Computed example of a mutant assay.
Amino acid sequence: MGRYVVKRCFHALIVLFLVATTVFFIMRVVGDPATLMLDANATVEEYEQLKENLGLNDPLPVQYVNFLKDMVTLDLGNSYRYKRPVIDMIGEALPHTLELVGLSMLVAIPLAMMVGIIAAVKRNSWLDNLLTALTITGRSMPTFWLGLLLMYLFAVVLKWLPPSGSGGFKYLILPAITLSMGLATSTVRLTRNSMLSVIRQDYMTTAKAKGVSPTQLLVGHGLRNSLVGVITMIALQVGNLLGGSIVVETVFSYPGIGRVLVTGILVYDYPVVQASIVIMAALFVGINLVVDLLYTVIDPRISVQ
């Protein structure tokens, strides 16, 4: 077990290293950061001063080593546009994104798994066909379009919820529903398919013959044995949630890290863009690491293998 944990943590560190390296070089391939950040009226002195502040006068290998060291120590520099430490900006925005992603998962996963189980139990019935059609419809909707549609219906027409901004739980509802749609539809489909595969196994027939109740049969035997595939998909979908949060936070003017990233890109705030991407990648890698370790709880054979 200990060897498995160490191995997974080592893999996670390698992925983070590769992401940070990719971000470092891509940010320099697109052009001279100082030139892109300054407007056309900037003087030569301002240009040289900005290059000095960003450490761009150092040789590229030195810049790379300093970049990695700063990432490890969370010394993310200062925002050129807002004249604030980047770590403070991300520290203010990150809790909002975690609330949004967390609520989206809390809404999507239990409901979607329940719908998937029902669809599997009632396979090929009118209910299964209806749930499948609704799932495909929800999956087909672009995130930004669904957000605008919900905003128009519940904020403009019905006036039940605020259209944008932050300030309490009610501001989270529409963004969370919008963000959770992709995860929910994927979870429904995979849960249904996994349950159909498990239901046909011999041990399910044996348990049923021994008089196991339908609820215990589905939850205790069927669902647990289908969870590995479902959890794998959910872990991969977390990346989509983090990526989708960029769109959702922009549509709803929600002050999360996705909106910080978009704003930084628009004004080419070099330190903000660089740090935001690495932090979001670290979140994704961290969540997948937790899921990898969770596998050993669901199926102890994984740690042995």
Rank of each mutant, 00 (worst) to 15 (best):
L16W: 10
A235D: 02
N129D: 08
I90Q: 01
L190S: 14
L293Y: 01
Q49P: 05
L130N: 02
Y203W: 05
G102M: 06
G77Y: 04
W160Y: 13
G239P: 01
L266K: 11
I257W: 00
G239M: 06
M114S: 08
G147K: 00
Y47V: 07
S186V: 08
E52S: 14
F154C: 05
G91T: 03
L217M: 09
G147L: 01
V23W: 09
T250V: 09
V65T: 04
G243F: 06
G258D: 12
K122V: 06
P163C: 10
N193L: 12
T143A: 08
P61H: 10
V121N: 05
K69H: 06
P59T: 04
E52W: 05
V23G: 11
T97I: 11
L158V: 11
S213K: 04
Y171Q: 13
M204Y: 09
Y268P: 03
I26H: 10
L13Y: 05
N78D: 12
R200V: 13
E92G: 15
Q274T: 15
V238R: 00
N78I: 04
V19Q: 08
P85G: 11
V30F: 09
M151K: 02
L76D: 04
L106I: 11
Y47N: 11
R28Y: 12
S125Y: 12
L283K: 10
E99Y: 05
V72M: 09
I287W: 00
L50T: 11
A120G: 14
S164L: 12
S186Q: 12
A275W: 05
Y4E: 05
M105G: 04
V65A: 03
T178R: 04
S194M: 15
V273N: 00
